[in-house]
């Protein structure tokens, strides 16, 4: 009898605790999601009024305006951002992974020293060097071009080696050694053995190095120096809201924000199937 009763009380306890947890989670989810949903809804409204959450008239015009408006060339900004982000993602991924591989596999003097140094330098906020960066870019003649931004983004790529190094450390060294005996040099080992095994970390690195320039505001606005043709989306959208003393452009701003997030989402959904795939199975003893 007693046993049976205990069973019930345990069950009741479980139910209450779960209910509480779910309630908290739901509340948090709402807090997180509301701004985004609000943004999406507002992007379809004809004219914005703060008191009205659900618009009276739904319209697609904001999206069309975005690409036809002559004051704010959103299409140009989007293209800028896309070019910067793609080139940066490719270069940065390669540099980061190569650095990580070097730190994980090669044993050279000052290896430990470098790793610590990078960790410490990484703790300083990046804007500390902004002015110097600008003068350096001016010296090499890239201060008035979006390629200057690419150089700036890629310059620090090696410093993000940490996560990838951790992953490479888990790949057995004997794979490298087997490949070396098979006739590979370090370069071949990296491209033909290590990278195919590291899809999750490659994807992670691509995503990280794509999103950073995609949403960067500070460095981009500083280097653009107010020239509209050099803006990326973040700077451009901010301009849209800063200049308008009124709120005419708010729905258009919302539409821009939605389009910006679509880019990232597309990339994520395309890459996520590699993200989950466990690929090290069967390498060594299983």
């Amino acid at each position: 009898m007693a046993k049976v009763e205990r069973y019930h009380s345990k069950k009741a306890k479980e139910i209450t605790s779960k209910t509480i947890i779910y309630i908290i989670l739901v509340i948090m989810a709402i807090i997180w999601l509301v701004p985004f949903i609000y943004l999406v809804i507002q992007s379809f409204t004809e004219s914005y009024s703060p008191s009205q959450i659900i618009p009276e008239h739904w319209t697609f015009q904001n999206y069309i305006n975005l690409f036809t408006d002559e004051i704010y060339p959103f299409g140009r900004w989007y293209l800028n951002t896309l070019v910067i982000a793609i080139i940066t993602a490719v270069l940065q991924t390669i540099i980061t992974l190569m650095t990580a591989y070097a730190f994980s596999r090669l044993r050279f003097k000052s290896r430990q020293g470098y790793m610590k140094l990078i960790l410490v330098i990484g703790m300083f906020p990046s804007f500390l060097g902004m002015i110097v960066t600008y003068f350096l870019l001016q010296l090499i003649g890239l201060s008035g071009s979006i390629f200057g931004l690419i150089v700036v983004y890629c310059a620090g790529a090696g410093m993000g080696y940490y996560v990838a190094k951790g992953f490479f450390d888990t790949i057995p060294r004997s794979l490298d050694e087997a490949a070396m005996i098979d006739g590979a040099n370090k370069n071949t080992v990296f491209w033909k053995v290590i990278l195919p095994l590291s899809k999750p970390i490659v994807v992670y690195t691509i995503l990280m190095s794509f999103t950073a320039p995609w949403g960067d505001y500070m460095m981009a606005s500083y280097l653009a120096q107010g020239k509209q043709e050099l803006f990326n989306v973040a700077v451009g959208l901010q301009q849209m809201m800063a200049k308008g003393k009124d709120i005419t452009y708010f729905p258009q701003f919302c539409a821009g924000a939605v389009i910006v997030s679509i880019g990232i989402m597309a990339l994520f959904f395309w890459l996520q199937r590699y993200y989950v795939e466990g690929v090290t199975g069967g390498a060594v003893k299983g």
Partner: peptide
């Protein structure tokens, strides 16, 4: 050539 204790086959 060398045969390793943990086989060291290329899993991919």
């Amino acid at each position: 050539t060398m045969v390793f204790q943990n086989y060291a086959l290329y899993p991919h």
